[in-house]
């Protein structure tokens, strides 16, 4: 009989414990695996571009005298809720978040489906909720690091550059808006990315599906708006619904002429749909009836 053993088997002396957050190893590993992907670090670094630009704008706003020669219209860098809302909703930031997620988190479930590893997870003392929480937290990490973290840091830098708390006293709710909007983006993108990831076993298809759905929704909005001439068609567009929600959270004028609640309902509906699909897709045994 062939022997492959290079060492004998020894029993483990330790004791298996119950973790408070059994999903944490899934999250940590998911983040580390994303950074092991080729070129991911570059994409990740570039995604901080909008935050750096916003920080520069913030610095300039406090040093207008120094930059007088370069700035024609000082209203452009009027720091207030709108400035933060603009930072959060600029196309570049959303595009980069989507790129980072599609690239780094698109395979979160797709790879597990492809390589049959769900049964390995569920042969451990893990439930569906733990698995889902672990994967969702990977998405949350990437969304929050590009939204809440720079958003709050920008407020802190604004106070540091200004050397007073006047800005904070003027807009005391702004940190909450930053956190609220970041949380909303986290929940939405969490469900959206995991939904896309569960729809295919190939992470490249997931990448295409993620961007395709996002862009197609906007194209659909354009077409339907052209035909029906009603702002309600914006409900078909993911970015338009995010814009509407953002304006609502930051207390700004709504970009589309319908209540923000409609957009929030659409976004919640997408999350609900994702939860149903994920519940069906994430199972320890693939049952073919």
């Amino acid at each position: 009989m062939a022997t492959v053993r290079e060492k004998g088997y020894t029993h483990w002396e330790g004791r298996l414990g119950e973790r408070r957050f059994p999903w944490w190893p899934i999250t940590r590993t998911g983040i580390l695996l994303a950074f092991r992907k080729k070129r991911f670090k570059f994409v990740f670094a570039v995604a901080f571009g909008p935050a750096i630009v916003a920080l520069v704008g913030l610095y300039i706003s406090e040093r207008l005298e120094d930059f007088k020669a370069f700035i024609q219209d000082s209203n452009l860098i009027d720091i207030g809720p709108k400035y933060f809302a603009t930072f959060f909703m600029n196309d570049w930031l959303l595009f980069m978040i989507l790129l980072v997620l599609a690239y780094g988190a698109g395979g979160l479930i797709a790879d597990d489906l492809k390589h049959n590893s769900l049964q390995l997870y569920f042969s451990r003392p893990l439930g569906k909720k733990d698995y889902f929480a672990g994967k969702m937290s990977v998405v949350a990490f990437f969304v929050l690091i590009f939204t809440a973290l720079p958003g709050l840091l920008l407020i802190v830098f604004k106070l540091v550059f200004a050397g007073s708390f006047a800005f904070f006293l003027q807009y005391p709710w702004l940190p909450l808006s930053v956190l609220g909007y970041s949380a909303m983006l986290t929940v939405f993108f969490g469900f959206y990315i995991l939904l896309m990831s569960a729809l295919s076993k190939n992470s490249r298809y997931v990448f295409v599906l993620t961007f395709g759905t996002y862009i197609f929704s906007t194209v659909l909005f354009g077409i339907l708006n052209g035909i029906f001439k009603t702002p309600y068609m914006a409900l078909f567009s993911i970015p338009a619904n995010l814009q509407q929600a953002r304006a609502f959270i930051f207390g700004l004028k709504l970009p589309h002429a319908f209540p923000a609640g409609w957009s929030l309902a659409v976004l919640a509906g997408i999350c609900g749909l994702a939860a149903v699909v994920l519940n069906r897709k994430i199972r320890s045994v693939e049952v073919i009836k």
Partner: peptide
């Protein structure tokens, strides 16, 4: 066949040990 793509054997085995509660 089942494994986690992008991992080496040590990380993979330790990962599932950790998920077991180690």
């Amino acid at each position: 066949d089942c494994f986690v793509a992008g991992m080496d054997a040590v990380t993979f085995t330790a990962y599932f040990g950790e998920l077991s509660g180690m």
